[in-house]
Write a protein that binds this DNA or RNA. Structure first.
Lengths: 110, 110
DNA sequence: TTTTATAATCGCAATATTACGATAATACTC
DNA sequence: GAGTATTATCGTAATATTGCGATTATAAAA
């Protein structure tokens, strides 16, 4: 099958999972860190820094863009990718809302 | 190819990505929420609550166990799955450490 | 206008993931 | 011990992901 049955889950569950999923690849974590630290924000520079082909980086950038955590601005021939700080914080909050749920401990676990 | 090139990334990047990845499926988010709210902590109950086959739930539980966020205790014929609160908080902190990095804004983005 | 630089997209191959039925393993119940 | 309930594992099919070369699109530069 290989096909996630999204329809049986709540919107919230699907939303959270999709955010986690996009961040669930080391190249995408690395790209975010490079952008954050201003080591690189141009696609080609990321290609040089990470050891992946241009097509591959471009694909990862697309996925990061899909959740809005970064945005690309055309800068002459290049594209400058930046963190969308508002979304960055919003996603952090969504994660914290999830993790701040009070964990009820079952009798069988104590 | 389909094979992630983990060796070109730092341990930290691989670590973070693997945590995100495990949480990047709605069934696993749902399972955690059920356990947290004590709606179900037994594999079979989760099978009833979610609309997935027993083998599928068992597989998702295995992945959640792999990062230590839940642990299973044998309880008679059943297994009771519980949140490991220490790891729960640790993972939240790892995520927050990532998100609390100061985002430097490039000239091209402002 | 041609060339050059940059990034997106296409198409493909290799591998991973998701889901499930069938079966095995485990431990309670009779 | 035989039967039953519960969960893990195996095997498999369908789909998704990863990565890359080749190509296309865009815009600056010559």
């Amino acid at each position: 099958m290989g096909l996630t049955k999204s329809e049986i889950f709540t919107d919230e569950q699907n939303r959270l999972a999709s955010l986690f999923k996009v961040l669930g690849h080391p190249a995408r974590v690395a790209i975010l860190q490079y952008i954050i630290n201003q080591k690189a924000c141009i696609c080609n520079d990321l290609v040089d820094e990470l050891g992946l082909a241009q097509a591959t980086i471009s694909q990862h950038l697309k996925e990061l863009k899909s959740i809005g955590i970064i945005q690309g601005t055309i800068e002459g021939k290049s594209v400058c990718y930046c963190i969308d700080e508002k979304l960055w914080k919003q996603i952090q909050e969504e994660f914290n809302t999830f993790f701040n749920q009070e964990v009820k401990v079952a009798s069988c676990c104590s």
